[in-house]
């Protein structure tokens, strides 16, 4: 066997080896093999991503892209029990992460396609999609609204649904914080927004932005995803502060449910916050009630005066 034969044979083995490795490489990895690799465990990811300053400047847009994940908030979020790689597919084992892993667009509907309760709800992701398409966040020409997706409001690393039993003020604050994180000008003390609203600050701490800035949904269904422009939003006080059933019911039932889920029915009956100012107002009943009471008072005064006159006459007769 000469040197040439050896090199030909070695080349053949090499080609076979390359072929085999190529073939093996295309075989899907098992869950166990993925879990064992660096960059697949949440702790691996959060080792870097929990740093508050972790960010980079997008070379195309020049914007700073925040890469920080609040591990505590994530742990308490709706996704807290998931692994990072459940959503972030790609080779994150190396640093810097390869370009292919960075370009992915995550899609909520991919996982949230059909909830097991979907058939019992009129409110599915299809509905959300339809409503969002009409939302000001989708229809606005503003460059700030460009590419608006679910994640702008529903931070997948921190979002959690409010739970019945949580203090209302806390729910309202957390909910409104989502809006205010972009709509920062609202907080400007010189802002003229909402100046028309009586007791503006009180409203802000008691009512979610969404309660006025979305159209009404059917009773029992979640709030609409069709966020309305300021001008199209609810300006009518009596939608809440009157008998209008749907918005009032939404607020009242929610508050009532929240109140009752707390620490026992008696304390919740005492500290019940469900009453909305004006819900018992009825101009007709008020006018009727107050006039009947006023008239009765007049009749009683007149009656008393008549009795006093009779008493004076009796006294006179006796004397």
């Amino acid at each position: 066997m000469n040197d040439r034969d050896i090199s030909v044979r070695a080349g053949g083995w090499l080609a076979l080896g390359l072929l085999l490795s190529a073939l093996l490489g295309s075989v899907p990895e098992t869950e166990a093999s993925i879990q064992g690799r660096l960059g697949t465990d949440n702790a691996d990811c959060l080792r870097c991503h929990r740093m508050e300053t972790l960010a980079y400047r997008d070379p195309r847009t020049g914007d700073i892209v925040d890469l920080h994940v609040d591990s505590r908030a994530f742990g308490h979020s709706a996704h807290g029990e998931l692994q990072c790689i459940d959503c972030h597919e790609g080779d994150f084992g190396q640093y810097p992460h390869p370009e292919s892993a960075l370009g992915e667009r995550l899609d909520c509907v991919g996982c949230h396609k059909e909830l097991h309760k979907a058939d019992k709800r009129a409110y599915t992701f299809k509905t959300i999609d339809e409503e969002f398409a009409l939302s000001i966040h989708a229809t606005s020409d503003s460059p700030k609204a460009e590419g608006f997706d679910c994640h702008r409001c529903h931070d997948p690393h921190g979002f959690r649904n409010s739970e019945v039993g949580q203090p209302i003020a806390e729910i309202v604050r957390a909910d409104n914080q989502i809006c205010l994180s972009c709509h920062t000008k609202i907080r400007d003390p010189h802002s003229t927004a909402h100046l028309w609203l009586p007791k503006r600050d009180k409203h802000w701490t008691s009512v979610r932005c969404l309660d006025c800035h979305t159209p009404l949904t059917d009773p029992g269904q979640p709030v609409s995803h069709q966020i309305l422009a300021g001008a199209d939003s609810n300006f009518d006080c009596v939608n809440c502060h009157s008998k209008e059933p749907r918005l009032l019911q939404r607020l009242y039932q929610y508050r009532s449910e929240t109140d009752l889920a707390g620490s026992g029915w008696l304390s919740k009956a005492v500290f019940n916050q469900a009453y909305v100012v004006g819900m018992s107002r009825s101009p007709l009943l008020d006018a009727l009630g107050l006039s009947v009471i006023g008239l009765t008072l007049l009749v009683l005064i007149a009656h008393g005066w008549g009795r006093y006159r009779a008493y004076l006459r009796l006294k006179e007769d006796r004397s």
């Binding site: 009773p219 008998k243 059933p245 469900a274």
Partner: peptide
């Protein structure tokens, strides 16, 4: 009023919370 969450949505075709309020 306090336990309106247990009431039906409407009573006699009217919103129950409003009916209770009136």
């Amino acid at each position: 009023f306090l336990f309106s969450v247990s009431l039906p949505e409407t009573l006699l075709g009217l919103p129950s919370v409003w009916l209770v309020a009136m």
